[in-house]
Design a protein around this nucleic acid. Structure first.
Lengths: 116, 116
DNA sequence: TTCACGTGTAAGTAGATTCTTACACATGAA
DNA sequence: TTCATGTGTAAGAATCTACTTACACGTGAA
């Protein structure tokens, strides 16, 4: 199911997850079909621990989903696939999302003065 | 004019610019009308140098546009307004954008050098 | 037992990002 | 001149991010 209206905080997390060339490549690769970590690392040309880290970030943002499965020869394989997301970014849409931001508030307190 | 198909690199830069609560708030505020830096800083409750920095990032990504104007009383005012952007993010769309990625690193400089 | 393959995670580091404080310059009004 | 407004930018600190290297544990096959 597609997340229609993520909160401002969730949106920031999703955007941060996508704002990285390597993670964009990972999503692009997974868009062509599910894959398990070690193989994906080989195909993209990245170390497995690094890929692991990026997949964690993508999964935390809800952009990919992972599932641990057992292969026929008994090995534990972690398969990942893209989630069904659909974000539409326009100024009005962002203004709407910004209403639900809870982090990094305009500091607690009134606007600070500039000259003492 | 709206940028229909930004390159992978441009997309990453736009996403990185939007992946920040404060900058999201800035865009949201400007979506309600243009404003100049000092006033915007007061309204959002942020220091002017900090806002200046974030506006630079947003403008570099093509999400806002700034223009230096002279007020009636002769002061130099830097007005900013939102650009007309429209990004549609889906797995297939990202896969398409990923084809035009030229760098492997986040958003820094050119492609990183290989090591032997 | 050893090898080849899969998994996860911790430690350390170089470089970015975010933010504050401070300085510099211009103008109109008091 | 001094004050209040606007502009820009530099220096430093605290914190993230991205990445490498190294370790741990599991399986089936040679």
């Amino acid at each position: 199911m597609t997340m229609a209206q993520p909160t401002g905080d969730d949106l920031v997390e999703m955007l941060a997850a996508l704002a990285n060339p390597l993670r964009l490549r990972i999503v692009a690769k997974l868009a062509g079909g599910r894959d398990y970590v070690s193989r994906l690392a080989r195909e993209i040309g990245v170390s497995r621990p690094l890929l692991h880290m990026h997949l964690q970030r993508l999964e935390a943002a809800g952009l990919v989903v992972g599932s641990l499965e057992l292969s026929e020869d008994g090995k534990a394989m972690k398969y990942y696939e893209v989630a069904d997301f659909d974000l539409h970014l326009t100024a009005p849409a962002l203004a709407e999302a910004a209403k639900t931001l809870t982090r990094s508030d305009p500091v607690k307190g009134p606007a600070r003065k500039e000259r003492s």
